[in-house]
Amino acid sequence: MTLTDVRPARAGRGPAPNRARNRDTFMLMLPALIPVLVLSVGPLVYGIMLAFTDARSGRNTETSFVGLANFGDLLTDVDFWESFRIGMIWAVSVTVLQFLASLGLALLLDQDLRLRGFARVLALVPWAMPPVVIGLMWRLVYHPDAGILNAVLGTDVDWLNDFSVALPAVILVGIWMGMPQTTVVLLAGLQNVPKELHEAAGVDGAGVWRRFWNVTLPQLRPVIVAITSLDFVWNINQFSLVYVLTQGGPGGRTRLPMLFAYEEAFRYGFFGYAATLGVAITIVVLAVLGVYLWRQMREAD
């Protein structure tokens, strides 16, 4: 209370009513802030703190502060970097291919088709499914004996257990799963492209391809940057899909970094190291995203 007694005297010349208003604003925000602090910031800070300890699973374990030792281990952990490499292949290819496929679908749904409303609803269906259900469904599709894929293609491939096919097979499911969001956002973006621009370009003799390249794409640019960045973050953090589809197999070929961190914590019990992995992945994702956004912004200027 001493602080508060002194303050008015010191700030005598300042705009006192203004400060009071600020305080009121803060008090009004407090109820909304508490859940954020307790449920979001709290666990986040706790997780970051864990990353600097040797916390392990166990009833009588003692946790001590180990500084950067976990990060040192991380740098030499071949298994993690292999998993990280797989994660980058996964995230980049899913994001890029998903974007291309969704753009095509969005352009199609933007046309004046018959049953357009129905088709748009259909395109949203995968969004309504939880990832676990999607995983189970695709496991059936890929089943070597009873799966529809082998039946249609007339092949005899064990899609999810073959060393070379497993990752592409999982990537395909990832693309399928994320298409609705991307399509809807791109479709909304397409509908905001002014018709006049197309008409003007048409008058100038630009063909369909030209108009797409020089009118539609530049107009869509902010939307594209936003959705691809979000997709990338979403994809590199993907966990449930691989957990259900392959559990990281065969032989770790689909062990995405988040699955790796999960196993460290909940299978082997190294909580501290797993937290370090989480922090490291966050840093790398932020760095990649930073570079991407910075380049996009610069080009936009």
Binding site: G249, P250, G251, G252, E263, R267
Partner: peptide, 17 residues
């Protein structure tokens, strides 16, 4: 102690290969 991690990180992939 640690057999489970050995199995999943080393044993399974190596034997499969």
């Amino acid at each position: 102690n640690g057999y489970d991690e050995w199995k999943s990180k080393v044993g399974t992939p190596t034997l499969q290969e």
